[in-house]
Design a binder for these strands. Structure first.
Length: 849
RNA sequence: GCCCAAGUGGCGAAAUGGUAGACGCAGGGGACUCAAAAUCCCCCGCCGCGAGGCGUGUCGGUUCGAGUCCGACCUUGGGCACCA
């Protein structure tokens, strides 16, 4: 063996894998299949350490499964539609398509040296017409299946740029470019009926055993099933047609504590009042200046306007409540109208205090006196409380019981009905933007909205567009909109809305099973490869992307594009943490921060100027803070294996990992050390002793068992710690050269998922047959794993004071005798019997006295 | 504001309710070297000379025993439906 030179070695082995075609996914019915997928990247132009981490984890799984004898599918593609391409076109000129495909080429070139086990023959980008054309075909099928509809919905409208803004483009209520106050504007938009599946998407979460608990909880909360009462108030003084006001409440047990009713500014009644009342119009206009995001709404100061309208309390016709328009009531949830019970809701309490409304407690803590509340009393629904203004059920009962009997009581009196509601809203997919999948419908003056004929798909984006003015280029294109009605043949106009990019990413996993098929999927391929056995990506996708994908798989099944088994497309999910780095800055004369790249810093100073830097603790790598490490530089300096090893070694995969130069160097040193051990064994064969061989065998099989277990459990940092231990053993071993060679061969296998190039090199040098990547995974010999003695710590009153070593299966009674005979124990007990003696066989002893 | 996580030596971390700190980094000491780098060996939670005491964000609780379970709080991160 020569010196460890990753630059040459890594390219050599990548070529060898390519020549052997080991990463080509083959539909081989004789083998079990394994589909591992990392969330595909947005082609921003540069890969970053987060990508390296994500793909390395997937690569470890893929290579491990190949060694386990699976037929593995490990594809890669590009989530290529979206706003940044249009922003780039606006800022720098050029075309989103050129920018995007250029970025894809750049990023792919940066990824290749990592030596990932990807089947590149399946690569596609969502902006390929072949891909989005199939998406349009599915849209038409879903439209026909009743899963798509149009309705009005609000968007952020920039009145200066005359364009729709994304939530992230609204900063403190103003447009990011124009700085104009953003308005809410209603547009007719396309929706997927995800709400049809609310109950099912919720119930099916229970079956996702290999998903993180936190993700299932987040999705369950997002779907937000609630049981409540929907009923109508009779109104007094409301406009024509508004004799009734429907409200929904999850706390009907607090009806006797009601002190007002409130409606959303977007409620039909508010709109009716707006027309005839300048005061209402002004207030509602004010409310609409808040952005459309729920966050903005919730953070805004809670405000209301008394409409002068009154409603009769359903349990007491003489009791009248004022009706407010309130900025915190969402039109999309329930009926867009509520009653407020300030005593038991923090927001209602704040509101009532502000507007001088009565605050009457309905229930109290069990055993508390009826004194005025200084704050809302909001116990868990499962907690027992004493009802003082209840009207249903026991005086003392849980909130849950109170709600249930209130619903029953109201239903029997003819006041409304119990309903199950969901927080989940239908999925609005219309975007008034160019760089997305065109929605394949046409607007015909005679026939109305007509689906485009499948024969005319894909509806391609025109290339001749400009971005020199705000707004949707499709809208102002001279000819693109012109078409004929597929139904009547008359002149018609195309829909200019494109689809939300979440649609693109909701089925790419299915497309990878047959990326070049003339239909969205190929039944035989989908049947063989689905589901994704292991999906890996960021926790930031816990709700939207994953929920939309779960819905889309169901919709694809309903329209015949996926088998029934694939309605939950991801069998197992792993969410990895971010890659972080320290931030370095100096300041200019005005004290403004100037950020510096890590490579500009040496010994706490900027190398070029010698100026000392301030160091800010690690944060997510971001270009603006310049705390980025370019994977390309790391690979050039140390090789891909070093980057892979370090990114896996230090932190548990689900947690954030901090990139440090020292850590990367340490990884490089370690790989060199392994190389040197291999070299010494190869060059200086020595006779060892048989005890040394036996000890090495035990350590080796312990390592096989531990590393295998760790990889199975996504504990790559622990797998690496075990390999460090094995390396320490190897470098001190007194075994024969044959035993050492064999052990190194096995160690190369254990390391190969993480550092595949080095593993091939060592495998070859140790006389391994073929490529290590295809060698069967080693199995631990159970006989070499058993321990015949156990060292038991002895605790006295829970504190460790001594230890004894006993045969593994010594009966408890004998262990007790030994413990009582122990010097330390005897001294502490001083002749007295212990109060308690706890022996946990094989683990620990606790003497209580 | 609401939902979900995380918090352990100087640092990254480990620990089926059972010896807190495996493994690694940094640091200290030593070997080798003319010297340095590289490599190898040893030490390394805090306080204390020591015996010992204290230690897993904070405060309480359950338990023979809590980093781990329960409750409240603090801080940081993710999401909040048009960023991807």
């Amino acid at each position: 063996m020569a010196r460890y030179e990753p630059g040459q070695s890594e390219a050599k082995w990548q070529q060898a894998w390519a020549d052997a075609g080991v990463f080509q996914a083959r539909r081989d019915t004789a083998k079990p299949k394994y589909y591992v997928l990392e969330m595909f990247p947005y082609p921003s132009g540069r890969i970053h350490m987060g990508h390296v981490r994500n793909y390395t984890m997937g690569d470890v799984v893929a290579r491990y499964k190949i060694a386990q004898g699976f037929s593995v599918l490990h594809p890669m593609g590009w989530d290529a539609f979206g706003m940044p391409a249009e922003n780039a076109a606006m800022e720098r000129g050029g075309h989103p398509k050129t920018w995007t495909y250029g970025n894809i080429a750049d990023m792919k070139a940066q990824m290749q040296p990592l030596g990932l086990s990807i089947d590149w023959s399946r690569e596609f980008a969502t902006c390929d017409p072949e891909y989005y054309g199939q998406q349009q075909a599915m849209f038409l099928d879903m439209l026909a299946a009743g899963l798509v509809y149009r309705k009005n919905a609000v968007v952020n409208w920039d009145p200066v740029d005359m364009t729709v803004l994304a939530n992230e483009q609204v900063i403190d209520g103003r447009g990011w470019r124009s700085n104009a106050l953003v308005e809410r504007r209603e547009l007719t938009q396309w929706f997927f009926k995800i709400s049809d599946y609310s109950a099912e998407l919720l119930a099916a979460l229970d079956g996702l055993k290999d998903w993180p608990e936190k993700v299932r909880t987040m999705q369950a909360n997002w779907i937000g099933q609630s049981r409540g009462l929907q009923f109508a108030f009779e109104t007094l003084g409301a406009p024509e047609g508004f004799g009734q006001l429907e409200v929904y409440t999850t706390r009907p047990d607090t009806l006797m504590g009601a002190s007002f009713a409130a409606i959303s500014p977007d409620h039909p009644l508010a709109r009716a009042l707006e027309a005839g009342d300048p005061g209402v119009a002004a207030f509602v206009a004010e409310c609409r200046r808040v952005g459309t995001s729920e966050e903005a709404l919730e953070k805004a100061e809670k405000r209301g306007l008394d409409t002068g309208i009154r409603v009769r309390h359903p349990l007491d016709p003489a009791w009248e409540l004022p009706v407010f328009i309130a900025n915190f009531i969402l039109m999309d949830y329930g009926t867009g109208a509520i009653f407020g019970c300030p005593a038991h809701d923090a927001r209602d309490f704040e509101f009532a205090t502000k507007y001088g409304l009565p605050i009457n407690a309905v229930f109290l803590p069990e055993g508390a006196a009826d004194t005025p509340l200084s704050d809302a009393y909001v116990p868990l629904k499962s907690e027992r409380v004493r009802y003082v203004r209840g009207f249903a059920g026991e005086a003392v009962q849980t909130g849950e019981a109170g709600v249930a009997s209130a619903i029953a009581q109201c239903e029997s009196r003819g006041i409304g009905r119990g309903v199950t509601n969901y927080r989940l809203r239908d999925w609005g997919i219309s975007r008034q933007r160019y760089w997305g999948c065109p929605i394949p419908v046409v607007h015909c003056p005679a026939c109305g909205v007509v689906p485009e004929s499948k024969a005319n798909l894909p509806v391609r984006l025109p290339d001749d567009v400009t971005f020199d003015q705000p707004g949707n280029p499709l809208d102002r294109h001279p000819t693109w909109r012109d078409c004929t009605c597929p139904k009547c043949g008359a002149a018609a106009r195309r829909e200019t809305d494109t689809m939300d990019t979440f649609v693109d990413s909701s089925w790419y996993y299915a497309r990878f099973t047959s990326p070049h098929a003339a239909t969205p999927t190929d039944a035989a391929e989908a049947d063989y490869w689905m589901n994704v056995d292991q999906y890996i990506g960021g926790i930031e996708h816990a709700i939207l992307h994953l929920l939309y994908s779960r819905f889309f798989a169901r919709a694809m099944h309903k329209t015949g594009h996926l088998p029934a088994k694939a309605i939950e497309p991801f069998n197992a999910l792993f969410t990895q943490g971010m890659v972080t780095h320290e931030i370095y800055l100096t300041r200019d004369a005005a004290g403004r921060p100037i950020y510096h790249l890590p490579e500009e810093i040496e010994g706490g100073k900027v190398s070029a100027t010698g100026k000392a830097v301030e160091v800010i603790p690690s944060a997510k790598m971001s270009k603006s803070k310049k705390n980025v490490v370019d994977p390309v530089n790391i690979i050039r300096a140390f090789g891909a294996d070093t980057a892979r090893w370090f990114i896996l070694s230090d932190s548990p995969p689900e947690r954030d990992v901090e990139w440090t130069a020292a850590g990367a160097e340490a990884a490089y040193k370690f790989l060199n050390r392994v190389w040197l051990i291999a070299e010494r064994v190869a060059e200086a064969p020595a006779a060892g002793d048989s005890a040394g061989d036996a000890a090495l065998a035990r350590a080796l099989h312990r390592a096989i068992a531990d590393v295998t277990h760790a990889i199975e459990n996504f504990a790559f940092n622990k797998a690496i710690a075990k390999i460090y231990e094995l390396t320490n053993t190897l470098s001190r071993a007194t075994a024969s050269s044959a035993a050492m060679t064999s052990a190194l061969r096995t160690m190369a296998q254990l390391m190969s998922p993480m550092v595949p190039h080095l593993a091939e090199e060592i495998w070859a040098a140790m006389g391994g047959a073929g490529l290590v990547v295809t060698a069967p995974w080693p199995k631990a010999d159970p006989a070499l794993l058993v321990q015949d003695t156990a060292t038991l710590p002895i605790q006295i009153n829970g504190k460790r004071r001594a230890e004894i070593t006993v045969p593994k299966d010594m009966p408890t009674a004998e262990v007790e005798k030994l413990v009582l005979a122990d010097e330390t124990v005897a001294r502490v007990l001083a002749g007295q019997a212990p109060k308690k003696l706890i022996v946990v066989p094989g683990r620990i002893v606790n003497v209580v006295h």
